[in-house]
Amino acid sequence: MDALYVPGGSLLHRADPRLKLLAAPLWAAVLLSYNNLWVMSAIVAALVLLYLACGIPAGTLKLVARLVAPVAILIPLLWPLFYRSGPVLFAPFGLSITAWALAQGLAASVRIVGLAYLGAGVLMTTSMRALLRALVELRLPYEAALAVTIALSYIPRLQRIYEQVTEAQLARGLDLSSGGFRRRAQRRVPILVATLVTALRSADVLARALECRGFGRKGVRRTSLFQIRWQRLDTVLALATAAACAALLFLRARYGFGAHPLFLH
């Protein structure tokens, strides 16, 4: 089971998974180095358009956004409490909320969504076996690479278990909708415990199943039925990515472009 993978034959699907694994942190570095709301929004908008063009359904993109939504919403709300420079927009309860703080908070929020989209972009366009191959080719030990891909594919499985357990507890009369925050949080305990027990049990079974299939045997050279190949297209994409990121990082470092949350210079 692949976590977010959407099968397809688009540019991103065909690109070598190693390229995707290396390009994502590069773009993440760009997002982390910039503070400007407009630059970051442009990058995230470009990412979204790229994914849509590559056949990723809008529903999958929404799902990823929903996953980071709690953080992405909380940051712009909290930022104005700690960032005070710039012209004051309004001052409720004696707090001075400035336009720059708002922009900075929104920029941070866009950055979080962007980082999530970069990571998700790799997962949405790369099958687990291609990802596993890429990690091994990038010199990660096979055991570690497999652990990473299994962990990723377990996310939707855990979510499914959580939903099933919630149903089972609701059916037993657990009332999740009434009472205060504390009471409601306490009522989640049966769900969390049962989910954890089920997950641990299936992890145990999985470990045994892997062992039975010869996993972890020392001193063997593994071959792989599935191979990945670096194509000329990958070289072109790698050069383009490197050039774009280098230019953006250079502008930021040399000229301070995008340092301000609201203004471009």
Partner: peptide
């Protein structure tokens, strides 16, 4: 009617017992 009210009338034993056991 909410599920919690119906649960007073209907008992449901799920396929996987682990989904309901937690105590």
């Amino acid at each position: 009617v909410p599920v919690s009210t119906l649960a007073r009338h209907v008992g449901y034993v799920f396929q996987n017992p682990d989904h309901q056991i937690f105590s």
